[in-house]
Amino acid sequence: MATKQKYETQPLKCWGRAKEIRENFYRDYAQAHEKGGLRWAGGAWTFGAIPCGLGDDVWSITSEPYAASIAANKEFSMRCLEATERAGYARDLCSYMRNYWGSVILNEYLWGGPFPKPDFIWQDHICCSHAKWYQVVCDLEPGIPQFCIDVAV
């Protein structure tokens, strides 16, 4: 009978640094206006290279990872999901969207303070929900210019 080989493991030494970089990423987004810059919102799969061309003081909130970060905070995630359902959105919609919208509806940012409203939306329609996700964001936060690229997956 084969015996199971055990390999020694250890926590990633870079894990703490990775979390620090992540926090800086979301803080940069929130503080963009204080630095004289702009904020844009869109999915993680969006062609980020294009807004990058606007300059180094333009920061994005990549919506799926932001929603996944919310999910790690069970108490806040629950409040986000409940706020979204209360606003009439179906509970079987993707939970990335529901966490994200909940954060907007509650006007609470995961890293503290009010939700930082984006200056523009730049999104890829990589599934049936992606462009519609930000259509709802525009319902919740009116007046944001929105541009979505068709990617008929």
């Binding site: 009439g88 179906a90 709802v136």
Partner: peptide, 17 residues
Amino acid sequence: IQQKFCDPHELDIPAIR
């Protein structure tokens, strides 16, 4: 009405209502 799990319609229904 909405077919269960029909995302595109689910995403419009609150605004339509």
